[in-house]
Nucleic acid binder design. Structure first.
Lengths: 111, 111
DNA sequence: ATAAACCAGTTTGTAGTGTAAACCAGTCTA
DNA sequence: TAGACTGGTTTACACTACAAACTGGTTTAT
């Protein structure tokens, strides 16, 4: 195989090695996908939607918060604690970019 | 947030937690994307195309081979060793499936 | 009253993974 | 024949995801 075939391989394909790892993790991708459409969601709702264990979900949410992709609010609903999550601008923008990237990858290659 | 919004979230979105991890790793995804279009490629060609270090590339190729996604052939080109890689059916099928999955994810969500 | 079960998460331990750096066997060059 | 180069492989380590164990508090049952 020579470099003659190089023209086939679009630069975008190579660039996916630099993909946003924070979003590339499936668990977090699902979390963000859910938050992308519902805007706000509490812990249990997210857990049901994603199918993640509570521990997992908690860890991933913290990671997303630390990177300012989501905002976590802790309140009380009567006496029971409630954790509410929201995708903020940084996260929304990153998610859009990620989608664009993988869309290009998925569509661009010849069959 | 109640489950009223549940209808928005398509089942496919949730399913990406079960994505093919072997292909989901960006390095391997690029390797397979290259092999997908060129059919056969040697080690150095792959290294140039992917931008991976030799050690990395070697490790990922072994992982792909162990899972029967690619076939690795070792020959001599004169006196210099040559490692040639080829995406086999299992790998090609998996790659197609992976593309389908992420395409759905990328396209399906509302903006 | 008090024990048991439950709720809403967090923390901890472990196994797996990706990565770069170090290494190796053999070949070419001066 | 010493040194550099080829074409990789192996090693060491830092990071990550995941499940299981735990925490702090509340409700239910006895």
């Amino acid at each position: 195989m020579t470099d003659d075939a190089e023209h086939i391989i679009h630069a975008d394909v190579r660039e996916i090695v630099g993909v946003d790892r924070l979003l590339h993790e499936p668990s977090r991708l699902v979390i963000c996908a859910v938050l992308y459409v519902v805007k706000r969601a509490d812990f249990l709702y997210l857990q049901r939607q994603t199918g993640l264990t509570a521990g997992n979900l908690s860890a991933h949410l913290q990671k997303l918060e630390k990177n300012d992709y989501i905002k976590i609010e802790k309140t009380f609903d009567g006496k029971t604690p409630r954790t509410t999550c929201e995708l903020v601008d940084t996260g929304r923008t990153a998610f859009d970019a990620y989608r664009e990237n993988i869309k290009r990858l998925a569509i661009q290659l010849p069959n």
